[in-house]
């Protein structure tokens, strides 16, 4: 193993190109995801615990409850990190989107390649006042999705991307 030790957290590493100022997504995304995770885990936990309780099995109930609680805590922690890792940057000619901690990803999309922009907001998203902006190119593999944007920022980004795309439009 000849892993370079120095490449830990210094600027200029592959997922942090030099001279790029990352904009983070709204922390409200973390809240929305935590709520959503809480609801799902809660329902699952209920479905598991209630029958056990009804059967009077106290020890298994406690164990299952603990497991779910641990899962919940771990999920909350992961969500926080994931949301903090998600970032985007508008450069002169392209948009950069970065995400992930364990599986890190970076995608660079030139504005001129953009075919259309989607803005999505589900019911939970609207409750937390966030929206998702997604950039589409002719390639399906382009995965430029930015969740957790405040609606004003989403609208601004959408218009800005559209106008930049138009200014630099190239054929396929």
């Amino acid at each position: 193993m000849t892993a370079p030790k120095s490449v830990g957290r210094q600027p200029g590493e592959p997922f942090d190109p030099e001279g790029v100022a990352w904009t983070r997504v709204s922390p409200r995304l973390a809240r929305a995801r935590r709520v959503s995770l809480g609801i799902w885990l809660g329902l699952l936990a209920l479905a598991a615990v209630v029958p056990l309780l009804a059967l009077g099995l106290l020890v298994p109930t406690a164990v299952v409850g603990m497991v779910f609680a641990a899962l919940g805590c771990w999920g909350q922690w992961v969500i926080g990190r994931q949301v903090r890792a998600w970032g985007y940057a508008e450069r002169q000619d392209d948009l950069l989107v970065r995400r992930g901690i364990l599986m890190r990803k970076l995608v660079v999309v030139p504005y001129g390649r953009m075919q259309y922009v989607d803005v999505d907001a589900g019911p939970l998203d609207r409750m937390f006042r966030i929206a998702t902006v997604q950039l589409h190119t002719a390639a399906a593999a382009t995965d430029a999705r930015i969740p957790g944007l405040p609606p004003e920022e989403a609208a601004r980004l959408r218009d800005r991307l559209a106008s930049r795309g138009e200014a630099q439009l190239a054929g396929l």
Partner: peptide, 28 residues
């Protein structure tokens, strides 16, 4: 002139070895 977008990806093992995967995105 035909490249749509580019990307990098890195899993935990790759990170330990100092490697990245590189992808060019082309229409389906």
């Amino acid at each position: 002139a035909r490249i749509q977008s580019c990307g990098l990806a890195q899993g935990p093992l790759q990170r330990r070895l100092g490697l990245v995967s590189f992808a060019l995105h082309s229409p389906p």
